[in-house]
Design a protein around this nucleic acid. Structure first.
Lengths: 207, 207
DNA sequence: TCTGCTCGATACCGCTCGGTATCCAATACC
DNA sequence: GGTATTGGATACCGAGCGGTATCGAGCAGA
C-alpha cells in the first residue's frame, strides 16, 4: 500500500522546523514518561512524524538526548539569569521577589522540572565531569555569583556568606523546594522561598 | 543437560535471607543503572540468583520496586531521625553538627541518593497522592517538625519561621545541597550546610 | 521540463525484556 | 525413611525496542 501523503497535502516543512518540533516533543514526552520509558517512535509521533525523521535529524536516541540537554539547559540558564535581573527595591524585597518568581516558574513548568531531574541523574551516572549539562550548570552558577555580588555591593551590606556560596545556596534551595513542592504542594507555601532568602541576607522584613 | 547445583553444594538459604539479598542487590543495581535500565535478571544475578528467585519472592518488577521503597525509605526515615537526636550544645552548634552529619551521610551514600531521586520521580509521575514514598516522606516531615520544635523550645529562642516551615526548609536544603554536591563536589564546602542552618536560626557563630 | 539530491516514511532485523510454565532438589513433617 | 511441599533454576514466549536499508515524494538549479 503506497503512502497517501501522511501529513497534509504533501508540503515539506523546512528542516529547522522539523528539528524544533522533534526537540519540543522530546522534552514533553521524555518528561512525562522518562527517557527510558519513552521510545523514539513516541517522540516522533508526538511531533507528528515517524522514527525516520528522528534518525535523519539526530544520529541516535542518545544524540537526541544530548541535543535536548544543549537546547533546554541553555534556555534554563537564560531564564535563571532573567530572574535575577535588578530592581531598585531594598535587598529584602528583591530577595522576596526573586523567591516568588522562581517558585512560580517551578509551578508553571512541572514537566520541565521532571526532565531536569532526569538529566541531572544521567549526568551524575555517566561520570559527572565533561558533560554539557555540568558545563551549563557551572555557567549558571558563575552568573548567579556575579549577580549576587552586584546586588550585595549595591545594597552595601556585608554578605553573611561568600557570594559563591550564596549562589550555591540559592540554586540548592531552588531545586530542593521545587522537589518538595512537586510531591507535596501544600507543604511549601508560595512565599516560603522568598522569606528564607530575605532571612539569609539579614532582612527579615515586616511581613 | 540437568542442572549441576548452581550455587554452592546445594545449600538452600532461608527465604528471608534470599529476600534481603535481592532487596540489597536491587538497591545497588537500580541506583547504578536506573530502574528502567536494569533488568530483573541483572538484579537477581547481582544477588547470586536467577530471575526465578525474584518472581518467587516478589510478584513483578513493580512489586520489587515497591518493596524497595518500603524497605529503604523506612531506613532513611530512621537515619533522618537519628541525625536530629539531641545534644546539650548551643543551638548554633547543634545546627552545625546536624549539617555536617547530613552532608557526610550524603557523601557516603551516593548510590542511595541516586536511587532516592529516581523513586522521587516515580512517585511524582504516578500521581503523587497515596504512594508509600509520599507517605513516608510525610512521616519524616512530621518527625522533623517535632524535633525542630523541641530544640527551639529548649533553647528558648523565637523561631524565625514556623517549625513546620523550618522542617520543610531543612529537608529541601538537604536534598538540594546533596544534588549540588553530587554534580560538583568542590562547589559545596563540607560545612556549608551547617553554617547556613546556624545562620537561619540566628546564630552566625564565631570562626 | 528534466535531473539529481534531500530527507521523511516504511518495512524489517536482531535483540532484550518482563513474565510464565515447568521441573526438580532440598527441606519439613510424621 | 517415606512423603508432601516449598522455592529457585530453566526454558520459553510475545512484545517492544533501537537501529538500518530502502524507497519515493518534493525541491532546487539549469
Amino acid at each position: 500500500m503506497p503512502p497517501v501523503s501522511t501529513v497534509g497535502p504533501g508540503r515539506r516543512p523546512p528542516r529547522e522546523e522539523v528539528r524544533r518540533a522533534l526537540l519540543d516533543a522530546a522534552a514533553q514526552v521524555f518528561a512525562r514518561q522518562g527517557v527510558d520509558g519513552a521510545s523514539v517512535g513516541d517522540v516522533a509521533a508526538a511531533a507528528g512524524f515517524t522514527k525516520g525523521a528522528v534518525y535523519s535529524n539526530f544520529g541516535s536516541k542518545d544524540d537526541l538526548v544530548a541535543a535536548l540537554v544543549e537546547d533546554k539547559v541553555s534556555a534554563y540558564l537564560e531564564l535563571g539569569l532573567a530572574a535575577v535581573s535588578d530592581t531598585d527595591a531594598s535587598l529584602g524585597d528583591k530577595a522576596r521577589a526573586l523567591g516568588d518568581r522562581l517558585t512560580r516558574a517551578a509551578d508553571e513548568q512541572r514537566d520541565w522540572q521532571l526532565l531536569f531531574l532526569e538529566l541531572w541523574q544521567r549526568a551524575v551516572r555517566s561520570g559527572a565531569t565533561g558533560g554539557a549539562f555540568v558545563d551549563r550548570r557551572r555557567e549558571l552558577h558563575a552568573a548567579v555569583t556575579d549577580a549576587v555580588t552586584a546586588h550585595l555591593d549595591r545594597a552595601g551590606v556585608a554578605p553573611p556568606l561568600p557570594a559563591a556560596e550564596l549562589a550555591t545556596l540559592l540554586m540548592a534551595l531552588s531545586n530542593g523546594l521545587a522537589l518538595e513542592r512537586q510531591i507535596d504542594p501544600a507543604g511549601v507555601p508560595d512565599d516560603l522561598f522568598g522569606r528564607v532568602l530575605a532571612l539569609v541576607v539579614g532582612d527579615p522584613g515586616a511581613s
